[in-house]
Design a protein around this nucleic acid. Sequence first.
DNA 1: TTGTACGCGTTATCAA
DNA 2: TTGATAACGCGTACAA
Lengths: 349, 349
Amino acid sequence: MKRKITLKQIAKELDVSISTVSKALRNSVEISEDTKQKVQAFAKLYNYRPNNIALSLKNRKTNTIGIIIPEIVHHFFSKVISGVETVANNRGYNVIVGLSNESFSKEVINMEMLANGSIDGFILSISKETLQQQDYHHFNETMSQGMPIVMFDRVIADIKCDKVIVDDYKGSKNAVEKLITNGCKSIALITTKDYVSVGKLRTQGYLEALHEHKMTPKAELILKIDDTLDYEVHLDALELEIEQLFKSNKKIDGVFAVNELYALSAMKVARKLGLDIPNDIQVIGFTDGVLSKHATPSLTTVSQHAQQMGETAANLLIDKLENEFDDEKEEEFQTVVIATELIERESTK
Amino acid sequence: MKRKITLKQIAKELDVSISTVSKALRNSVEISEDTKQKVQAFAKLYNYRPNNIALSLKNRKTNTIGIIIPEIVHHFFSKVISGVETVANNRGYNVIVGLSNESFSKEVINMEMLANGSIDGFILSISKETLQQQDYHHFNETMSQGMPIVMFDRVIADIKCDKVIVDDYKGSKNAVEKLITNGCKSIALITTKDYVSVGKLRTQGYLEALHEHKMTPKAELILKIDDTLDYEVHLDALELEIEQLFKSNKKIDGVFAVNELYALSAMKVARKLGLDIPNDIQVIGFTDGVLSKHATPSLTTVSQHAQQMGETAANLLIDKLENEFDDEKEEEFQTVVIATELIERESTK
DNA sequence: TTGTACGCGTTATCAA
DNA sequence: TTGATAACGCGTACAA
């Protein structure tokens, strides 16, 4: 078990100084051809590679970006990571992953852990608990230390940083309009509590679509789910609530759900009640997931282009990292909006 | 924009030496109470945290583990990461993720990038291309440099390192036995080409189960899919092949598929051909995925306990990292087998 | 053309 | 009780 070879060892072996070796390997004109050849051959033989950590320390730059997400076992987030990773790798960066598990304290701890020199900047999506508590000091502190943050999907308007979001509002509006165009007269909405910003925006899109088509929103058609519950319990409760909704509003002929699971649950309950999809009831979900594609019937959804969100976020962050010259200028932050796309499948006519 | 504060700056501010500050912060008995208090208060005020990179360089230990997987947008792999991350965080480690995208060269490049000091050890699952080319030099080189590797799921018997695998053989055998017990007389197998070790083992389990129940395996009931194709093309081709299989073997009353997608496709085709599940045909898949749970009918599967695999791998790796005292002793490698579990749902009787 | 010295931030050892 | 020094591995300005 031989340790990785260092400049020092090469220098010793070849009986030259460390800096000579360093220069020779970087093909400096200061060094004679002879020495260069000798050193380079030796380095190649022993497969010399500069130590990243030493470089990071010296350059005060790690070439690593940290990504903090609420959950990794989730198609949307893993797709975002995939996008980040692709761009990061192409531009010479590594990606280090932290999971908040939707917990405020884990989010804080993870960020502190990484902020102490391990990374150059963050890409993150805020945990539900943080959104609820509305405690954002850790983001501001991180940035005040000169570490840039790019937020995606779950963002906060008040925080000054780059952001990548989806046009939740417009995407939802389009989806609901699609249902209206398809002839739905009584459209239910299955959404989350309002503190999740995206849930709120998607709800607004729903309302606006109804409004524009002179349809009166009815409170009894809007189901706001408390998604802080344990997953299994949540799912059962969800189905019960949806069943209740359908039973007390027999006229429902369209459902817009703000995520994939809600949409699938709606389809399941509808089937159970003997309703045909899409003839009796049409359903649209909001997501990029695999479930939609393979469901029976397959689910029409608003696609978020998660991969593209990740790529965009990574580019924004790396651009910022590599353009620190404008230190004096007032910092400018961008918010990139990724267009959604309605993917029509079998759950709509 | 204030940079993170360092020992040096604190020392300068308080007009003491760097080493005094360092010792005071670590509560050394060498330092007077007075000085300690002064230094600690100041450090707290400025939120001092030791720089990880400097520590890594000094200690030659990064407290970071690298995980290389073929694909992150995949329920199984993201669950493994989740397991790794949980254990790693609890034991004071960070996780840095590299994706091979099933490509040999990306796997090599990613590993080289991380092996140059960024991490202390690897957890990985081998890419398909690597398995096909059977070129494993990068694993051996990495290990010969003293960097431990723990492989999971897709492993190679010849490589000497710790491994975490699932009892693919037994899991498959159990699944097929379940079908037999449930009365299936003609059981089809949908599997991958043999170079994917897990595909091979699962095929063997299938054969053994038939054998033990004195059923003769028939070549025409075994469908070996070439899964190197592009995903979309692959899926269409897959369904065609399955349809062909069903049409030319009308007696098939049971299907065992080595992954979730194959199983779902089988169900889809069966439905299309007017077969009822589970009455006409019973289906079992092999995986941990979400699809199985939410499919219609929900799919009986062999669960791999991906999360547990990740946790086990992380513990193995960290144990090894923290027990390097037995340098002289012959290194011992373990292979931990995680038991599978048959999760019965609606696709079997 | 080569080598010395320094600094990145930290800790450990030894000297004062 | 405190401080100076060396070392981790590297690159570079400057001296020889």
